[in-house]
Design a protein around this nucleic acid. Structure first.
Lengths: 184, 184
DNA sequence: TGTGAACTGAACAAAATGTACATTAACAGA
DNA sequence: TCTGTTAATGTACATTTTGTTCAGTTCACA
């Protein structure tokens, strides 16, 4: 991809998340993003159709990065799905999320968080679906409820973590696995 | 309050949540809400400043209803905070939420869900804060993490429930308390 | 260094937002 | 039933935001 395109996209992403840190998603206008990114109006519209589209693109990019090697791993060695494996994968994901923290903090601070979390949960659903298969059914609780429970639990742990920088990926991983005790 | 105002507000709330059932919050315009509610443009603006303001008002109204007698209860008899008490209060809240299901389903189906959940969690935080006080500290897990865990867990259970009408408040209450096992 | 692709900025049309006001209709209380 | 008050109406208007177009410029890369 042309270096100019990359620079433009990065500038827009940065401007956008910077704005999100102080202002709510709905109150930010496209023009403000354009000004903050210091690009031409038509440039923005040649990259993104709307503000919603920008948000979607940003989320896609972030998760492509976060789950990149997790998906690869899945393909190469048919993983076991046991407790330790799950813990490794989770910790790995947390490390990637840590890299994108600057972006994510802004996104999560307003209505845009909804889309982010939705994306995130979609990926997580795949991950936990397999882990859940190995477990015995819980006393009359619907599997789908349990899966949703796990997914939301982890996603919300991450959201919490984004505002508590003092903890390491390993610690968050432990918090999560301890509170979702039946997994380990 | 004047009967006309009530009728207008109800019409707007209904139009708004009806629209939300099919379309995303951001894509809905104020004009569309006005048309669907079949009211004059200036009438809308005499009630609400913006679309965001409308959403806020709707959430406030819903939660005033949902938590009304829970807060009263708190004042009258100084409740014990034990497991059974928590279960009762939770079930009670679920019954109220069931009444507002028609509204809530729409709100939760797009970005507007973020605000709704934020409101909801604020109320829940109060409720669970007390319940958590009675419990021993969990092995090195920050109290704030645990509280957030509980709150999000319950809120997400409700969100899940809104798409699975087949379960009763008692069942959801049981699902929640079983998966958040350390509370009981 | 040449060429295609990306960026620019200004200009434009269309849509949405928010306000003002004179008029009409509905309400509550006597 | 009458009356003063308050809400709703709808049109008109100013402003803002959005999204597109296009001719000219700059830049990356081969």
């Amino acid at each position: 991809m042309d270096r100019r395109q990359q620079r433009t996209r990065q500038a827009v992403y940065k401007a956008f998340t910077d704005l999100l840190r102080c202002r709510s998603y709905n109150s930010i206008t496209v023009q403000e993003i354009i000004d903050a990114a210091n690009i031409g109006r038509s440039t923005f519209y040649s990259h993104f159709e709307t503000k919603d589209d920008l948000l979607k693109a940003l989320c896609t990019e972030i998760f492509a990065h976060v789950f990149a090697d997790d998906l690869m791993k899945e393909k190469t060695h048919d993983f076991s799905g046991d407790a330790q494996d799950v813990q490794h994968r989770i910790t790995h994901i947390l490390y990637h999320l840590q890299d994108s923290r600057a972006y994510i903090r802004g996104i999560l601070s307003s209505e845009s968080g909804e889309l982010f979390m939705r994306f995130f949960k979609e990926y997580l659903r795949e991950l936990f679906e397999e882990a859940l298969c190995r477990k015995k059914a819980e006393e009359d609780i619907p599997r789908d409820y349990m899966l949703n429970h796990l997914v939301c639990d982890f996603a919300e742990s991450v959201r919490w973590w984004m505002h508590h920088e003092e903890y390491s990926p390993e610690e968050i991983s432990r918090f999560f696995l301890t509170s979702a005790s039946f997994l380990c």
